[in-house]
Simulated assay, not measured.
Amino acid sequence: MPGWLEVVIRASVGVIIVLFASKVLVRKPVSHLTYFEWISMAAVAIIVAIGSFQLTIPPAFIILSLVVWILVPYFIDVLSMKSQTFRNMVRGKGIPFIKDGKVLEDNLKKQRYSSDELLSQLRSKQVFKVADVEFAILEPSGDINVLLKKDYQPLTASDMQIPVAPIKEPETVVMDGKILDEPLSTLGFNRRWLEQKLEKMGVAIENVYLGQIDSFGEVTVDLFDDKIKVPQPVEKPLLLAQIKKCQADLEAFALQTDNGQAKKMYERNSKEMQQVLTKIKPYLK
């Protein structure tokens, strides 16, 4: 067999092996890999690369080496999932760097972390003052996670006791100008309904690059031609405006009438409408 052909065959097989190994060894973002996982993947890549052009190395030796470097890390991962002790030994545990706004210098020294490196990591988390940090921990992946003190954490709707509507993942129903029937039917809609929605927006399906439907049934689209402006959905704002007008009309009727019984009826209905408005307002924003 010509040397160049053997190199092509070895390299092609190596690509397939690396693809297989990446599925077996790695199922997480690259930034979350541990050092051992990095080394394992690098070792597999190096073995494949060298074995592709070093024709003096028997293919059996290359395959045997790859089997070891793929299966051993795989079984280590399996054992790590079943045993916390083994997992801590292999991957390590989180190490606190800051507690109650105080830097733990001994832990920094053990991990060979300088003050500048710590401050740089904090700045990457938008934290510029150590005293504002309640807790900071060095994860096994090398990332530093930071928890600010309660006084410095961003306000949430829960903190302000403001009711908000639950949000579900929107479904993609149009991709590259083609309707995806499965997610559309999952939401309880059909092609005719979608076509009517797009017709109201003045958009043809073949011009839609990406179309999504949220949990409230609103359709949003991104067109192939970015210069064309698509009108925003108006159903929810219109409904909110109608309910507000209805509540305001009931209040006006109560003020205008001289009939005591009618006034009480209007006032009662106005209060009930206000309660309805308060409950559904978060869903219509």
Score class of each variant (00 low, 15 high):
V164C: 03
A165R: 08
A165E: 13
K168W: 00
K168C: 05
E169P: 06
P170N: 04
E171I: 02
E171N: 06
E171T: 04
T172M: 15
T172D: 08
T172W: 02
V173Y: 05
M175E: 14
M175N: 04
M175C: 13
D176K: 06
G177T: 05
I179E: 00
I179R: 00
I179D: 00
D181V: 08
D181A: 12
P183I: 07
L184N: 01
T186L: 06
L187C: 06
L187P: 02
G188C: 03
G188V: 05
F189G: 01
N190M: 00
N190W: 01
N190D: 15
N190V: 09
R191G: 01
L194A: 05
L194M: 07
E195D: 11
Q196N: 14
K197C: 11
K197N: 10
L198A: 08
M201H: 00
G202T: 02
V203C: 04
V203M: 04
V203D: 10
I205V: 15
I205D: 04
E206Q: 15
Y209S: 09
Y209M: 11
Y209P: 10
Y209Q: 14
L210K: 08
Q212N: 03
Q212F: 01
I213E: 07
D214W: 04
F216D: 11
E218T: 02
V219S: 02
T220K: 08
V221M: 08
F224Q: 12
F224W: 11
D225R: 11
D225W: 15
K227T: 10
K227W: 00
K227S: 15
I228L: 13
K229R: 02
V230H: 11
P233M: 02
V234R: 12
V234A: 13
V234I: 15
E235I: 12
P237Y: 15
P237N: 15
L239Y: 05
L240H: 05
A241S: 15
A241P: 05
Q242D: 08
I243R: 10
I243P: 07
K245S: 14
K245T: 07
K245Y: 03
Q247M: 15
Q247C: 14
A248V: 02
A248E: 15
D249E: 14
L250A: 03
E251Y: 09
E251M: 13
A252C: 01
A252D: 08
F253I: 00
A254D: 05
A254F: 01
Q256S: 11
Q256P: 01
Q256W: 05
D258M: 13
N259F: 02
N259D: 15
Q261W: 09
Q261R: 13
A262R: 09
K264L: 10
K264T: 06
K264W: 07
M265A: 12
Y266W: 03
Y266L: 01
E267W: 04
E267V: 03
E267R: 09
N269D: 12
S270L: 04
S270P: 01
S270Y: 01
K271P: 03
E272M: 09
Q275T: 12
